[in-house]
Write a protein that binds this DNA or RNA. Structure first.
Length: 725
DNA sequence: GACAGTCCTGTTTTT
DNA sequence: CAGGACTGTC
């Protein structure tokens, strides 16, 4: 058999991974080491060479984008092109299972997926219904608590109540569960938890899928949370083979429940697991890799991996010390312009930052310089209010029980159903344990509402019923279009945005177009296809769509460091490299968080192919206050020989605050001594060592020295009397 | 129900 | 500083 297309151009480690016969394989794939290729070719190897049927393969990723990319590349391999293979996100796969087995999972057939926005709205109502003060118990925090619990596989009864505050949160969790169940709503974390519980409670089903999926592959394994790990572990059982790809150095989602430890647990829990390291990097210059390796080398407890490249050193990494964030932005933009003037593409450039708020200064500088740019993040298509409003009507058509949709649609556009009326409806629903829809019907039959309110409610009920009748037999796009017009939503938004540049009605038109292109998804070959509407609604929740509809101009890319993971650019600028911002203030207070920030720095640095620019500002306005941050420790962790200070240590005259000494500057060189990072030194008592860190300035400068015999120590330079060399 | 004024609180984000 | 949430007025 000709397998050359699967193995050609692979290095030995990649080949080993693709062809391994080990039952369980952990591929530690460094940044830019060709991990997607390995994953894709591994699947090709399994199906083409070892004769695994395509339906016996389950491949899981974290984002829809990654799943789409994988599907695309598998079909490019030829063969059966992955048709019939289960490839998807954890959430997508869980959703698929729950659709197929809604009865076993204890769900209504028309259950809807609740996105985080809807989840918070629902929680708000639950908190109110419990008579709690929503100031003391913000819905956001409750959502955080509940999601974190679900990510750990915990139902309310599994949580130990440690204190009164936790007790209340558990009560909220319980009430939220009741409300969500009644409304037939499933949030993101619930999808995973239910799917996992399906394995635990339905032995027959589990057995069926264990038989079927002989091979489980997981991408970005370092990002799995407890429940995702458990899901895979249970599904693998004793005979399933697994192939997981990840990089513990790129684990940056611990704050939302991801457990890097899963990488270590894997080696412990999956018997006979072997490890393959992909360390050859095909992306960046040697200088960039040197910087990345040095930074990440400061983290303890790594599985250990050192990136290398067969290519040359490349240019030095520029470091720019800006006066403030405006100066910083202008400098970055200048650098981008130089790149573009030299014939580079704007879309090859990215500016990365720690938090979204930092994009503002950059955008201003880009506009001023007339450089086209695109900001990633922010509201996505299906998250826009007008889109969600429209979908709320469709959700009600599909399921009257959907309280979240009811709340949204009932008075948008306004139709005289105000807070008072709704309060009464909610109270009845609460008292009688009903859905809002049922409560409305009850109120209409009862006598506690006044005539005006009744008329308004009756009109709303009739509207939904009418929409339901009218749209039967229509295509999806027609259903949406009709609902949009008949509900008055379209004219509502047309009116609102009249004479403005607001593109709301454009988005509504776009929604109809998207729907007309929406391909009916068969949940499973041979199985009943999902009703198109239900499928579309799930799609809208699970895949929120692109941030901006205008697409691929040649423009500079702006995004957070988190959003940059998985991407690469010839030119990368990272701005805001200051203590307190990156690493963030909060990261320094909690154990383990600093390491995660450092991994984020590692991710940022390794995005760059050819050219990297690192910037920090001495002054930065944050929340309207001028703040002063020392250069980030991550800068100081980079060996100076790969750095080029664009604006070297010039003492800039700046307003002198009292008699304060000039602030510490990047690579503060304690003047005469020649001490610098990486320098070998001798101490009279501690012997030989290497300087690994600096702190402070002037006579109080301290250095961290890693002594051969004594370990690491902080010393005040002016007392330590260190000998260089 | 629309609008203006006030208070408050500020990482990272996919599904 | 600035966006969101909330309150109070017409």
């Amino acid at each position: 058999m000709d397998v050359s297309h699967l193995l050609d151009a692979l290095n030995p480690a990649q080949r080993e991974a693709v062809t391994t016969e080990s039952p369980h394989t952990l591929v530690l794939a460094g940044a830019g080491s060709g991990k997607t290729r390995v994953l894709v070719n591994r699947i090709g190897w399994l199906t083409e060479v070892t004769g695994v049927p395509v339906y016996g393969v389950l491949a899981v990723t974290f984002t829809n984008k990654a799943a789409a990319e994988m599907r695309h590349r598998i079909s490019a391999l030829g063969g059966q092109g992955g048709r019939g293979m289960w490839i998807g996100t954890f959430h997508g796969i869980a959703h698929r299972l729950l659709r197929l087995h809604w009865q076993e999972a204890g769900l209504p057939e028309t259950f809807q997926v609740l996105d985080s926005d809807d989840q918070i709205r629902l929680l708000k109502r639950v908190i109110n219904d419990l008579g709690l003060d929503d100031k003391r118990w913000p819905a956001r925090q409750a959502a955080w608590f509940i999601n974190a619990a679900k990510d750990e596989g915990k139902r309310p009864k599994h949580i130990h109540s440690a204190d009164p505050a936790t007790d209340t949160l558990i009560r909220i969790y319980e009430a939220y569960e009741v409300a969500a169940r009644r409304a037939g709503l499933v949030d993101f974390a619930e999808l995973l938890l239910r799917a996992h519980e399906l394995w635990l409670t339905q032995a027959g089903l589990l057995h069926h899928y264990q038989q079927r999926f002989g091979h489980l592959l997981v991408d970005e394994f370092q990002d799995t949370n407890t429940i995702q790990y458990a899901f895979i572990r249970v599904l693998a059982g004793s005979s399933g083979r697994t192939f997981v790809v990840g990089d513990d150095d790129q684990a940056i989602y611990g704050w939302r429940g991801a457990k890097v430890e899963n990488v270590q647990h894997y080696l412990r829990d999956f018997e006979g697991a072997s490890t393959v390291r992909l360390e050859q990097n095909y992306r960046s210059t040697a200088n960039i890799l040197k910087a990345a390796n040095a930074v990440i080398g400061h983290n303890p407890a790594r599985l250990g991996k050192t990136l290398w490249t067969a290519d040359g050193d490349g240019e030095a990494i520029d470091v720019y010390a800006a006066y403030n964030e405006m100066d910083e932005a202008q400098h970055a933009v200048q650098r981008l312009q130089r790149w573009i003037n030299d014939g580079g593409a704007a879309s090859d450039c990215a500016v990365l930052y720690r938090s979204n708020a930092q994009s503002r200064a950059l955008e201003e500088a880009l506009i001023q310089a007339q450089v086209a740019y695109r900001v990633y993040g922010g509201l996505r298509f299906f998250e826009r209010a007008e889109i969600k409003d429209t979908l709320a009507y469709l959700r009600l058509i599909a399921s009257r029980a959907d309280d979240a949709a009811f709340e949204r649609a009932v008075n948008t556009p306004t139709r005289g159903i105000g807070g008072k009326t709704l309060e009464q409806v909610r109270a009845r629903a609460q008292a009688d344990n009903q859905t809002l829809w049922e409560a409305v019907l009850g109120e209409l039959a009862g006598s506690s509402l006044n005539g005006r309110a009744k008329t308004a409610l009756r009109a709303f009920v009739e509207l939904i019923e009418q929409l339901d009748r009218d749209t039967r037999g229509m295509s999806l796009a027609e259903q949406i279009d009709h609902s949009l017009k008949a509900s008055g939503l379209y004219s509502h938004y047309a009116e609102e945005s009249r004479g403005t540049l607001d593109a709301r009605t454009d988005n509504l038109d776009e929604l109809v177009t998207v729907a007309s292109r929406f391909a009916r998804v068969e949940v499973e070959e041979g199985a009943e296809p999902l009703p198109e509407l239900i499928g579309f609604l799930a799609y809208a929740s699970l895949e929120a769509g692109e941030g901006q509809s205008e697409s691929w101009q040649d423009c500079v890319q702006l995004m957070t460091l988190h959003a940059a993971k998985g991407l690469e650019f010839p030119l990368v600028c990272i701005v805001g490299m200051e203590e307190g911002l990156f690493p963030g203030q909060k990261s320094m207070e909690e154990a383990g968080r600093l390491e995660e920030e450092r991994r984020l720095a590692y991710v940022g640095i390794t995005r760059a192919r050819q050219k990297l620019l690192l910037c920090y500002a001495e002054t930065r306005r944050i929340h309207g206050m001028d703040t002063f941050g020392a250069p980030s420790r991550f800068l100081r962790e980079i060996p100076t020989d790969v750095l080029n200070e664009v604006r070297p240590r010039v003492q800039v005259s700046r307003p002198n605050y009292g008699s304060a000494a000039p602030r510490a500057r990047f690579v503060a060189e304690p003047a005469p001594s020649g001490l610098k990072l990486g320098a070998a030194v001798r101490h009279a008592k501690f012997g030989l060592g290497v300087i690994t860190d600096f702190e402070g300035d002037g006579p109080h400068t301290r250095v961290q020295v890693n002594f051969e015999d004594e370990g690491s120590k902080w010393l005040v330079v002016s007392y330590a009397n260190l000998q260089v060399g």
